[in-house]
Nucleic acid binder design. Structure first.
Lengths: 351, 351
DNA sequence: TTGTATGCGTTATCAT
DNA sequence: ATGATAACGCATACAA
């Protein structure tokens, strides 16, 4: 029977000590067999320890290991919202990469509150993780930015690694994807299809990456010879509902004039799509729609959404690599993002 | 300056001892102020400790606390796949509920491998969590079921709580939703709309909850007076692709005869939808479609999908409650699931 | 009320 | 190669 007897009805968890005793060896020897790296234990002992551990159902006490070793096998990940397909995909990729090298990922969510990031980092630091990866949306001018930087620096000073994803505004290891270039190329392709009079839906909440997407798109249009005045940029609420409400608030004349709506996320693009349909417009016959992120669970929306694809697995791989590799100099790797033209933006007829 | 000086360039994390020293009090006093519950520390000391902690940027070492207390403030959650909208929604709800009472959720994924569950539970047990919630899909006849049960029992014996979600096959605290009743009601409503000749797509991998959904649907049809012979049940691969491939493999005659496809998940329903469209069928004019789960990110699918809604927040709340409350008797709570008729299953014309 | 001493389960440093 | 012993950071029983 496993589990040692305790005071009450609950048993004490099986410890290394129990295993060692059962195997008739010292506790450090049991440790060397079960957890240690440099194997220099006699085969006979080895087997006995392994057998005893199996018999008793021994599981190493991770907190104890973390304390003894001074470091855990955990990576802390901060994201905005786990139910958001973009972030859940990101989290999934990071977990995959981390688990491949035997690391556990501890997820914390900000729920989109800018100032929660600081609190979370503080809490996470208490878990003694190997690294902290900040993948949440980076705000343009967060209220407590300096405190966050201080907190992260403090963490780095104790040997922790800090990796930022998609927010190259802070002095830490950064993995970015090319928001600007991605939407710039998208704009060029769309211009090539004949689209000229575009409505750009940015983010009402000031987010760095979203801003870049807007800039890139506008740049791409200008480079393609689309008259500056043809492009209208607005910043509704950063959500499906925000985009929908905005297109519903447009005047009939404004909508009639439009050939395309580009929203900085797929989510918003679909909100715009819903709003336009409510107004009786046909998509893509009357107006084209494009987004950004290439969220895979949207494969079933009709028409298929033109968007910008980001290689999340590459981002995750790079992030985990940086999170686990001690590198002297600070680097910023940018993962490419490229447009994917689908049915929501067919070539314009007169083109 | 914060962070004590270490041997090399890295500083040692600030400990309670550092804080106590800085405040000129003993370490237990600092502990009582910062972490302890029963406040019986002189106000003057209290302030000095708080001040010192703030100054030094103290964060409690969670592993150390866990070891000293013998229990952590963590709930371990096992799910199948984090990128699956159903599971990410579930995880989000559980995290929300847990955080509301100051608990952290540690997520582990099986990647849909039936036997990984056992390994994960073993690993998770090492984290000394308060509770383990198994929300991953329950297989009908998992290879290592007895071992899993043993492992979970062992965990319970050491004071841990075990909660199962949507798999009432094992002898533990269970929160279920009414798969059978949900699809039974759905079938009755659809029969009421005139649907009679139905294709039911179950799950090729033997999953308990999915089996119940099939049974419930068939029961509902029979109760509604739909001839038994009219219903065809099949079990393609448990995925979008599985459902799509299956409907593509049907003969033209088989498809022509169909009035409705009910798939046991929204994901599969959309796969079937995609496949049917590839065959040139119009949805819902030529054939109706219904799913199960009511995944919110599918709001943009056209036509809007008829499905069975599950109150995930209620499930999560119940699960976290059970995970944190010591209750003598074993209980199985069932959260209702109810059909939501949408545009993908309009009333049949001749009806 | 406050401080001293001890223990949590593990790893690491030492003798042996 | 193996075992005794000292950390790790914190909480707690106990003494003051």
């Amino acid at each position: 029977m496993n589990g040692m007897l305790g005071d009450s009805g609950v048993r004490r968890p099986v410890t290394l000590d129990d295993v060692a005793r059962a195997a008739g060896v010292s506790q450090p020897t049991a440790s060397r067999v079960l957890n240690g790296s440099s194997r220099k234990v006699a085969e006979s002992y080895r087997e006995r320890v392994l057998e005893a551990a199996r018999e008793l159902g021994y599981t190493p006490n991770l907190p104890a290991q973390a304390m003894a070793r001074g470091t855990s096998r955990t990576i802390a990940l901060v994201i905005s919202l786990i139910s958001d397909p973009y972030f859940s995909a990101m989290a999934a990729e990071i977990m995959k990469q981390a688990e491949a090298i035997g690391l556990h990922v501890s997820i914390a969510v900000t729920e989109r509150q800018a100032d929660r990031e600081l609190d979370l980092v503080r809490e996470l630091r208490g878990q003694q993780p190997r690294a902290i990866i900040l993948a949440g949306t980076g705000y343009v001018d967060p209220p407590s930015e300096q405190q966050l930087v201080d907190e992260l620096h403090r963490y780095e000073e104790t040997g922790g690694r800090v990796v930022l994803i998609s927010r190259s505004d802070l002095p830490f290891e950064t993995v970015d994807f090319d928001n600007h270039e991605g939407s710039r190329q998208l704009a060029r392709e769309l211009a090539g299809l004949g689209y000229e009079r575009c409505l750009v839906l940015g983010s009402g909440t000031p987010l760095l990456s979203m801003r870049r997407r807007v800039e890139g798109f506008v740049t791409g249009l200008v480079e393609s010879g689309v008259a500056d005045a043809a492009t209208r940029v607005h910043h509704p609420g950063f959500s499906w509902a925000g985009a929908r409400d905005f297109v519903l608030s447009l005047t009939e004349a404004e909508v009639r004039d439009l050939q395309l709506v580009f929203a900085v996320t797929d989510d918003m693009a679909l909100g715009a799509l819903a709003g336009l349909r409510e107004r009786g417009l046909r998509i893509p016959e009357d107006i084209g729609i494009a987004g950004f992120d290439d969220i895979s669970t949207l494969r079933d929306v009709v028409p298929k959404l033109t968007t910008v694809h980001v290689a999340l697995n590459a981002v995750a791989q790079e992030a985990v690599y940086r999170a686990t590799t001690t590198d002297a100099e600070l680097t910023r790797r940018t993962v490419p993002a490229y447009p994917v033209i689908r049915a929501s933006t067919p070539p314009l007829p007169q083109h």
